[in-house]
């Protein structure tokens, strides 16, 4: 399945918007890393939209977390825009990745995976 990783930059405000769609898995990890590197190096405020992601795996979560970590160190922001698609929530749930607060002290509130509600079956 094809995928797109569309990065738009607004140079004036130093904001960036990355739209991911389609199938993004381990075989696309290298490509995604390059896009994310570019995104975080060129923008202070990065929005990632994953609403169109159809299939994915752990590698995507790792890369987004790593991006977030780099951003925290540089005093930048990374946020998820829009809804989490089913493909993402499945991986996040299966991997025990949803959390109530961030994994490191600095990311307590800005963590990308803080869930809004308690899990029903847990």
């Amino acid at each position: 399945m094809p995928h797109t990783m569309d990065l738009q930059n607004n140079g004036d405000e130093n904001t960036g918007r990355l739209v991911l769609t389609g199938e993004i898995t381990i075989s696309d990890a290298r490509e995604l890393k390059e896009v994310l590197l570019k995104a975080i190096d060129t923008a202070d405020d990065l929005r990632v939209n994953m609403e169109g992601v159809m299939e994915t795996d752990l590698s995507l979560l790792q890369l987004l977390c790593a991006t977030h970590r780099a951003a925290l160190r540089q005093g930048k922001q990374v946020k998820v825009e829009g809804k989490y698609p089913a493909a993402i929530t499945r991986v996040v749930t299966d991997a025990g990745y949803f959390r109530r607060e961030g994994c490191v002290a600095e990311a307590r509130e800005s963590c990308l995976w803080i869930r809004q509600e308690e899990d029903k079956d847990g």
């Binding site: 381990i26 990890a29 290298r30 995604l32 890393k33 994310l36 590197l37 975080i40 752990l58 590698s59 979560l61 790792q62 890369l63 977390c65 790593a66 991006t67 970590r69 780099a70 160190r73 299966d94 991997a95 025990g96 990745y97 959390r99 994994c103 490191v104 847990g122």
Partner: peptide, 27 residues
């Protein structure tokens, strides 16, 4: 089952090997 991913070994995007697994789990 309660699964919790531990991500403390995860480096930043600049250092990460995109094809390696850094996560480990407490279950």
């Amino acid at each position: 089952c309660r699964i919790i991913a531990q991500t403390d070994a995860l480096p930043t995007i600049h250092e990460i090997d995109p094809e390696a697994c850094y996560i480990y789990w407490d279950i």
